[in-house]
Amino acid sequence: MPVSSDDVKNASGLTSSEKQIIQSIKELYTCKPTDSTYEMYTETAVFHDPIGIAEGVKSIRAQFNGLAKLFPRAEIPKLRVLENPPSVPKSTLLIDQDVSYYRNPQGEPIKTINSLLTIETNDQHKVTRHTEEWNHRRETSAEDGFMGMLNEGRKKFTANFTGMFVSQAPPEQKNES
């Protein structure tokens, strides 16, 4: 049986589709998304972080395009792809990263956040779920009772509200349109 280019691994064990997803993650978190950055997601993908739950690629675009509006510069001083424990499917990427955010592009970072990204993909190597946990701490969910359910409702509201005010065009492409 012929091997597809997505099945060929590099020296680190990553497939070409995984390398592309990691490149897109870097573009998102350094506040430099382009239209092609969002091609890694399915139309119904979900992005869940401590602030919001964005459902669908349009809502995800709004979250990261909004992030780029808040921070003109961000850097990733540390990014490690972690080895999946046996309980995590091979179609899931685990990424440990530090992201430094800058309000003044020439100044010092105002905040550096460590996070664990859990990137779940489908058989077409598209991201179906992108979860970010700050400091590797799981947030409450609806499964955690009434307060968890309220917290999830707030996160969905936050993502929807952001989507009402943030353009679908990536920040650097706005002047080109």
Rank of each mutant, 00 (worst) to 15 (best):
R103D: 06
Q124V: 00
T118N: 04
I25T: 15
S177T: 03
I95H: 07
N10G: 08
S115K: 15
G13I: 13
E83C: 01
K174Q: 13
Q124I: 02
S4H: 13
E139P: 00
H130V: 01
K174Y: 01
T44E: 15
H136A: 11
K78R: 14
Q63G: 07
N104F: 08
L28C: 10
V127C: 05
I113S: 12
R103F: 15
K58E: 13
T158D: 11
I25A: 08
P170T: 08
T112R: 12
S16Y: 00
T140G: 03
Q97T: 08
Q173Y: 02
N114V: 00
K155P: 00
T121C: 08
R103C: 07
W134N: 15
K155M: 01
T128G: 05
T112V: 14
V99K: 03
V8A: 04
D6C: 11
E133P: 05
P89Y: 06
D7Q: 14
P85Y: 08
T131P: 01
T42L: 09
E139W: 09
H130T: 06
E172A: 13
E55F: 04
A54V: 01
E39R: 09
K174A: 03
I25Y: 15
D35A: 04
L82A: 05
R154Q: 06
Y38W: 02
S177N: 12
K155H: 00
V166M: 11
K26V: 05
D35V: 04
Q20W: 06
M147Q: 12
H136C: 08
V3S: 10
I119G: 05
Y101S: 09
A169C: 09
A159V: 07
A159I: 06
S167Q: 10
V127A: 11
K19P: 07
P72E: 09
K32Q: 13
K111M: 12
L94M: 14
S36A: 10
F161C: 02
E133A: 09
P105A: 00
K126W: 06
E55A: 11
H130S: 02
A68F: 03
T158Q: 13
R61F: 01
K78I: 14
T15Q: 01
K26T: 15
T30I: 09
E172V: 00
F157Y: 15
V46K: 15
A54L: 03
D49L: 09
R103H: 13
